[in-house]
Amino acid sequence: MTLHEIRELLDARVLAGKNHLDVEVKTAFSADLMSDVLAFAKPGSIMITGLTNPQVVRIASIVDNSAILIVRGKIPPDETIALAEKLEIPVLSTKYILFETSGRLYANGIVGCIRKIEGPGSVVPL
């Protein structure tokens, strides 16, 4: 799906990166724990989170997320949006909760970055 299509599907507001929504997205990672995003998110994936501080944008830049999708209708502070514009990372905000957001994307062909964790440090890929 493109970010345009994701925006439409989730009735999301585009808060940053208006001109970067043609990107095709295949994977996503949902988390409120940034250590997990650093550990498991794949380049090009979309980060789905309930956090809104500027950290989220810096983490997305480190792991090369294609976009940040904020759930529960939260609106990030201005500094988060300004940083996202500067680093050219699209930020979308949807009113759906994390579960609904993830489920709707999954139903439309978006998959997770990994499948599961089998034991300490043992990642089962898709």
């Binding site: 409120d32 724990l33 250590s35 997990d36 995003v37 550990a39 956090l51 501080n53 300490p120």
Partner: peptide
């Protein structure tokens, strides 16, 4: 050890403090 943490609320609010950091670094 994964999960060991002495992080305070401020750290947790930022999305850290789950005791995964050093483990991630090693990985």
């Amino acid at each position: 050890q994964q999960g060991y943490s002495t992080a305070n609320d401020r750290i947790r609010k930022m999305g850290f403090g789950a005791g995964m950091g050093l483990f991630n670094i090693k990985n």
